[in-house]
Amino acid sequence: MNAAIQIAVDAMSLGGLYALTALGIGLIFSVMRLANFAHAELVTCAAYALFALSGQPLVMAFSGAIVVAVALAVVTERIAFRPLRRADPTTMMIASFTVSMLIQKLLVFTLGSRPKSLDPVPMLSQAVSIGPTQVSLLKLVTIAVCAVLLLALTLFLKRTSFGLQMRAAAENFTMAQLTGVRANAVIVVAFALSGGLAAVVALLFAAQSGFVQPRLGVPLMITAFVATVIGGMGSLPGAVIGGLLVGVVTTLLQAYLPPDLRPFREAFLFALVILALLVRPNGLFPARGLKERI
């Protein structure tokens, strides 16, 4: 019982982080078919903003992080991705690699590659007890924040006119444009939202890891990217469920693999990924409109 609660909290908090990151990647993919690897740097730069503002009150520091991540997302869209909107997806993906590399190298060049320690929300670094079990408050807050954000985003997408336009664009971009959806506006808003999500992820992730370095976001982005593909590239509920699933499976593998196989746990995770793709090549929840009509 004790261990079960612990594992459940670990799984949900990790899965929540992956889900938020996957959602940031999925938003962009659904409106412009871009697998944005530079999402990692949105998280990293937001974490550096938190580091730079670490003396300030949390609200200040967090607003700073949001501004940085949103600005960066919108600027990369304008400079790198808009000119390539008609290029093939491979070129766009590689362009996002180079953007990611450019920002990483800029960070190394200006701030150095050494990890810098930060503790954006010190009040969360205590444990609370659920019954007999000690659980990290930070992890509980992570779960709560993820749940609230997912709810808010769902409401935005389902209940606002802009959300409707975004869903229309995700389903069939050309058709949406023909019915009067402004393509540039939708894409910019998608990038801004993905930047905002990255800032939240940066706050939660930096609070867990306690440091920031130029490659902070990379492993998170890779796992989340895998999650969006498993969930169904282009489907937003798919991204969330894929993220949660990967978090849960990772935690379970960590907890229940025999000790001598534990170093190989990520190999098991990725073998499961391949397996999942073989069974459902378009993901668990294939997005409508992704399949080309002939």
Binding site: P89, I222, F225, V226, M233, V273, I274, G283
Partner: peptide, 11 residues
């Protein structure tokens, strides 16, 4: 497509 990219990445 992207499924192949992720599968080879996993490899």
């Amino acid at each position: 497509g992207i499924a192949a990219a992720i599968a080879t990445f996993s490899l």
